[in-house]
Design a binder for these strands. Structure first.
Length: 268
DNA sequence: ATTGAGACCTGTCGGC
DNA sequence: TGCCGACAGGTCTCAA
């Protein structure tokens, strides 16, 4: 379930039950997820206080009282729930906080990740150091996007999935943003970048579309408290394009092994 | 250096 | 009903 908006919702869910609370117990039901847990994970965590619950792209970051950081990624199927004591299939990690709250990580496919990063080591952590700009931050704009796409021969959709170009989009919102911007997913990424000096309007449109799509997804989820299911193009193959006055029909194709949904009429 | 294919793992869904 | 393949919101590694 997790692209940037979903991870942000998880962050907001965890913050009130974890912030300024101590880890009283940590239960690992397996020795690995995508990777092995770091050595002494449990011992190093117990007794520490969570300073805050932050997010960088699709990563959750929990700075600890020691200066270390608990780094977590939800992978494809990871999720957290709080409060319920019960144990379900695929519950892999349980945190018992000093508030009494039970925080459980459930992840059927186990593509998730947990790591404990030494003080000062975040910026050089292999998962974090390679990340491109945070799409909702002011330093991500058309210019930054154009720069990142310069010389890239890969399809635009594939570029949006590359976390080094912009960090936080996944397969759904990459398709959605391209539809908002009216750009074809198959264009070479370089074609939105600066051709002869000035960044092209397409880069600015796309950067704005990315922000809009992510912000609306977060706002919607916060409002409705269950996941929004109405997308513009994602999972709508053969259905009519939702753009006003567009007569197109949504198509699906595979790019870099992932499904892309787009309108061949209004995305150029 | 960049790009694409395959790998990782489990669950669900549609077709026969 | 059961079996089988295709597919799923992510990322890593490897080889061209």
């Amino acid at each position: 379930m997790p692209e940037l908006p979903e991870v942000e919702m998880v962050r907001r869910h965890l913050a009130p039950v974890m912030e300024r609370r101590r880890f009283e117990d940590v239960i690992l039901r397996r020795r690995d997820l995508r990777e092995a847990f770091p050595r002494k994970f449990r011992e190093r965590l117990i007794g520490q206080t969570a300073v805050s619950v932050d997010r960088r792209a699709k990563y959750l970051l929990v700075p600890l009282s020691s200066g270390e950081t608990l780094l977590m990624h939800l992978g494809m199927s990871g999720d957290f729930r709080t409060g319920t004591g019960g144990s379900l299939r695929h519950d892999h990690v349980v945190f018992r906080m000093s508030s009494g709250a039970i925080v459980t990580f459930n992840d059927p496919r186990r593509f998730g990740l947990m790591d404990l990063v030494p003080a000062g080591g975040l910026a050089t952590h292999p998962a974090i150091s390679v990340l491109g700009p945070e799409p909702l931050s002011p330093d991500f704009d058309g210019d930054a996007l154009a720069r990142a796409c310069r010389g890239r021969r890969m399809p635009l959709k594939v570029a949006l999935l590359d976390q080094r170009i912009v960090a936080g989009l996944g397969n759904i919102y990459a398709s959605e943003a391209l539809h908002v911007a009216g750009l074809s997913p198959t264009r070479r990424a370089s074609t939105i970048a600066t051709g002869s000096g000035l960044p092209r309007p397409a880069a600015h449109r796309l950067a704005a579309a990315i922000k809009q799509v992510l912000e609306r997804a977060i706002a919607r989820a916060a409002r409705e408290n269950y996941r929004a299911s109405r997308f513009r193009v994602y999972d709508r193959e053969a259905e009519p394009c939702r753009r006003a006055r567009c007569t197109g029909v949504i198509r699906r194709r595979t790019q870099a092994g992932r499904s892309t949904f787009y309108c061949p009429v209004c995305q150029r």
